[in-house]
Structures are given as structure tokens and as C-alpha cells.
Design a binder for these strands. Sequence first.
DNA 1: AACGAGAGACAA
DNA 2: TGTCTCTCGTTC
Length: 751
Amino acid sequence: MPTALEVLLPLPLEPLTYLPPLARPLGPIGARVAVPWQGGVRIGLVVGHREVPAGRGLELREAVDWLDARPFLSAMAVDALKRIARYAAAPTGVVLAGLAPTGFHQALRWEVRAAQGAGLLAAGLSADEWTDAAAVNVELLELLRSQGLLDERVEAELRTVRVVVPRALADEALEGARRANQRAALEHLWSVEQADSAAALARDSDVPESAVRALIEKGYAEYAEVPAPAPALPRATSEAELPPEVAAEAVPPEGDGAIVGGLRRDRLAALLPRLQADLDAGGSVLVLVPEHAYLEETAAILAGLPLQILAGDADDEQRMRLFEELPDGGPVVLLGTYLALLAPLPGLARVVVLESASSSYKLQAGARLFVPAAAALLADAAGAALTLSEALAGPDLVARVSASDRRSLPLPRLRLHVADVNGAGNWPLHPDLITVLRQVEARERQAVLLAPRRGYSAALGCPDCGWMAGCPNCDLTLRYHRQDGTLRCHQCGYEQAPPALCPECGGTDLQPLRGAGTQWVASQVAKMLASFPVYRFDRDRRDDLSALLAGGPGVVVGTTAVLRLPRLPNIALVGVTLFDTHLGRADFRAEEEALRFLMQLAEFAPERRPLIVVQTYQPDHPVLEAVLADPPEASVEVAIGRLLERRRRFAYPPFTALAKLQLTARTQSVASNAAAALADELLRRGASTDEILGPAPAPVARVKGQYAFQLFLRVNAEDRRETLLDGLPARLGGARLHVDVDPRDVGALIE
DNA sequence: AACGAGAGACAA
DNA sequence: TGTCTCTCGTTC
């Protein structure tokens, strides 16, 4: 029986079967191969070999050519890829498209010629000369290939750059004093062989540019396209930082484990000896960060180790070079975002997930992966240890890592003041916050105010009849942006001018309603503190903060984008204008994430310990009480214990496995019927009625003109979830199905 | 994802 | 009847 290739394309498909390229060896799992696809060729990944019956071979098409002689992704990474796809209930190709940072979208040069002895002059193909395949009829190519009459080769197109190269030696025409400059430039060019540009050559040989131009005009030198030099690998740009001293007992264990508590850099310092031991033993380590903003500070502390970096800012050539060089290098620490998950590290011994509960790890596109879950599957496939790091030993971490495998540092001490906004005037700034802001102003220090959203207010409406401006495409209120005089939908981007009159009752008194955004807070601060510089920092507006970063006085009003700024050197106050948005988020993780948010504020300036003023309608909330205790460790542990107990009682993860299944369609009935049909399908697959919650309209019932219905699948084990979700169709009765495994916005599931 | 086939919607 | 748009099924 002939052996065929299972080829995975970066498309929403499972692997397809191709015969190996004609007259080529079989090639290893993990290598890339060019395959015929829709009249052209594209790059796929060999994820398996399979024996096919001889007769079946006639129906299959041949792959065109190999792009790699050795695996591009390790067999272990291929294995992890399949596991991750099954976990996420997504086509394997979607996971490849989402996680392979390079290698599958390169421009290709595809050439053909007649196979030896085929004699295809009639088809216009020579047996000696390669012909660009694009110039040959597609059906003809298919026919010739299937008959074994075609010889093909595919190579990644090399990037070239235009340079100046010498063409002729100086001769008598360049003699004489008036040609001295041209002669000097030409001699220099011969000695360096090529120059980046005419201007560069002029500069380097210390002659005017006109002299070089003359050389090119006279044919002594010319422009040429040459292969571009290998790009430099991405490097950390900030200075190496001496790691803080950390007790030896805080070093996480050799096997699976976690480091919790302290500040980010304390936890990193605790990790260092462990990483060094891995490297000494010949193993590599993958260190994952949730966001690009943490890369620099992490690299600064890991700077003493052999370190490579891979994140979204690397260009495709840098990524490719890194993928090519990693397997041949020694043990290394690869620091990166989710893009680094499948990197071919030699002897992967450990996967470290920093800030392992960060919601930024939930990818919004493609398979909607939760990266730490994917990292755990990768570690498993590689036989590597998994080490988690986060400030708070939250319910998920406590359930995954036993107490004996956890190492703890003390929690940061917050100077916290809770401002009860019930009945307090001066919305959106509590008098306490104003008082402190005035002190900050008087002492010429710095403050940060965190608002829950950008814009002026969450809505614009009529206080007489209760009407609020809504989006025509979505079931959402329009956000009011007073500064640019618009109402905007933050979901679909719809924009309109605010109406002059209430369209319901004709009232003339339309007002900003509900939550205050950055514009509102900033204008209020400016009104109360006339001479204090006010900066805004959110997606709409990023003021130049260089004066503040240099230590100047002022207040920054922003969204959580502010948390990713470099440290403000003179900060004395952090204000949270409405903590309730954190407490009231529609997810069963809302409270622990609110707690985590407070812990994150300690990162602002650990040595200065700025005062943190939290405005809230719930001043007695257990989350705040836990953090206010001194020392907080015991009370925080109790609070987490209560949250874990609540998850057990109401059958939430980690005690169950959850998936959100959403159906969207342009008409409401299509979406709702499809949701009902999906529930039936799950029952048919053996789910019980109490494992299916819903279907019901999604919390936002219509977004961008699409109606959404959803149901939750809640089962007792992950493998049961995988079985029930395996191979669901992407479309159901005219609606599109979106599967979100381990969703982060579960809403009011308990009721 | 990207293509082509087929079904409706609309104008002439 | 032609042309445009949208939906649906297929890709080894």
C-alpha cells in the first residue's frame, strides 16, 4: 500500500490527504510541503503519514514539493497542535493558523519542467529549462502531474534588496584630477563589493553624490537585486535589571508547580534559579507573557540567561530566522506571547506561564484559546514541567496546583482608602478623592485616575421619558463622546450626532447618563483643580506623557491602558472611579479578577506605595474587606476559599467543564431555531438535559446586525466535553456556530 | 479561507 | 434575459 501524507493547511479544515511529491522521498512529520490548492499552490504542514489502498491512490492528488528537509515544527509540537484543537473544539487548521507565527504565508516561486523522457514539447514544456508554473494552463498541469510527466519545484521567494555593485574597473576615462572623486568611489565600491545605495556609497567614500551618479551613468557601477541579509533577531531594548533578593524557599519545584504572591519581578526572581537549573541540565524553557507590555520588564530580569524573544512586533523574517536557528542552538529561554507556543525549542524541559490568570490570555480570534490551557497541553505533549506564576492563588490555580507544589511570597501591602459614593455629591469624583487630589496638586506630585470606559458617558438619554440613544445595528446604548460631539457604538463603530430633541417625547433636556468615562472624569478634574495639568490616556487619545515620565506634576485620566505605561516616578495617588464595574462583571470569575485588579495597582510604584482611593457603591464588599485586612494573606485566602466553595456549589469550573455555543444569523428566528436544533443534536450525542443550559438570547441579543442565541454545555469532565463537541458543523440551518471552550464571560449562569 | 455553483432580487 | 448579491458546499 502506498503511503500518503496528512497535510494540514492554515484554514478552517481538518488535515487533507495528498500523495507525496513525485520522485521525492517521503519527508518527516512536521515538515512543510507545497500542495496544489485552488489552481495554485500553498503551504501545508505534514501532521501524519497514512497507508492508503492502491486504488484510493488514484483519487488523491500529489503534493508538489517539500519546503523543508527536516521538520519545521517538532513532532511534539504537531502532537500538541492536535491536542489543542480537540480541546478547543476547533478545526486543527484554525489552531495552526492562530499559533504558527510564520512559515505558512510566504510568497512562493513555483516552477515546472517536463519529466525526463516525457518529451512534452507540444505542451510548451522543456525537460531542461524550468518554466514559471503560473504561465502554464492549470488543467494541463494537473493532468501532467497525475500522469507522472511533470517535474516541479517550489521555493520560498527570497526577499531582495536593491544595492549598488561595481561593474567595470577604472580605466583611462576616469584618469585626471576632475575624475578623482569618481575614481575614489569606484575603488571603494570594488573593495566593499556592494553599497546599500548611491547616497551611502557617496558618504562612505567621502565624495559628492553626483560623483556616484556619474559612475552609474557611465556603466562603471549599477543597481542590482541581491538576497536581503538575515534580519537581526528581536532583542530586549531596556537595560538588564538586577533581580531582587528572594528567599530560596520561594523557588518553585522542579516538577509542575506555581509561584504566587509578591510583585511580578519578585516572582521572576524566584523563578531564576529554577530556569538556570533547567538550562544547566541541557533543557530549554518557554516563558509566556499575556501581553506585549510585560516583555521588556521580564527580559530585563532574565537578561543573565541565554534568551530569545518572540512576540507580535517581530517581522516575518525575524520569526523565520528564529524558527530555523532554535533547533541547532543550545538550551535557551524563549520569552514570548502565545506566538511562541509552537517554537522548535531544543529539549523543552519547562513551560512557564506568567500572570497565568490574565484575561489577556483569552484569544478573541480563531479558536478562542485560553493560552494557559494550551500551554498545559503543550507541556504534557513535551513531557515538560508546567510552572505558573501569578499574584493571587485564585480558585483555578488552587485547584490545579496542590499546596505542596506552590511557593508563596507575601502579598503586596496596599494603602487603600474606600470612598462610599452612595449619596455622595460631586459625581463622578467623591469629595475624599478631590481632597487627596488637591494635596497631590499642592505637593506637585502625580496621580492616576482609572475610569471604566473611554468617552464621556455610557449613554445619552432623556430624563423625562427614560429614552436612551441606541445603536441601530446592536442591542447596546451608544456611548456619548462629548468632545467630538458624537454618539458612538463601541461594538460596531456606528457613529451619529446627538439628537437635539428626545425622539420619544420631544424633551429638550437630553443628558449624559450612567457610567462616567475618561472625558467626563478629566473635565471634572480640570474644573476642580484649575492649575493641575490633566492628561488623558485611552484608545481615543494618548496624550504625550513625557513631562510626567520625567517627574513633572499632573494627573493621568485613562482606562486600563494606563496599567501598561512605564512607571511614573513621582506617583502619590491612584484613583479607581467606579470599582463596581469590576465587581459586577457578568462572569463567575468577576470577584477574583477584581481582587487581582487591586493587586495589579501595587505594581504602579511599589517603593512609593501611592494611596489607592477606590470609589464604590459597595464599600463593605468582601473583596475590599479581604484586601483591607493587615496582613491580608489570611483574609485573602479565606475569600478565595469562599469563591472556590461557591464554584463547587453551583457546579462551575474547575469542578465542571464548560463551553459556550453561540449561534448567529441575520434573522432572529433562524438563530433561535438553530440554537434549538443544536440542543437537540447534543442530546442525540448523549448529553443529558441538565448538561445543557439554554438556549437563550445572548446577553447582547444583536451585534453588528446579527442576532445571537447561545447555550452552555456543562459536563463533569473535559474529555466528555471534547467528545460531545467533536466535529460539530460550522453552520446549522442558516446560522453560524461559534464554540467557546472555557469562556471568560459566562454571565448569570446560576439562575 | 477562498472559490464556484445556484438561488433570488431587480431592471429593462 | 442579464447582472448583481447572497448563501451554501467543497476543498484530499
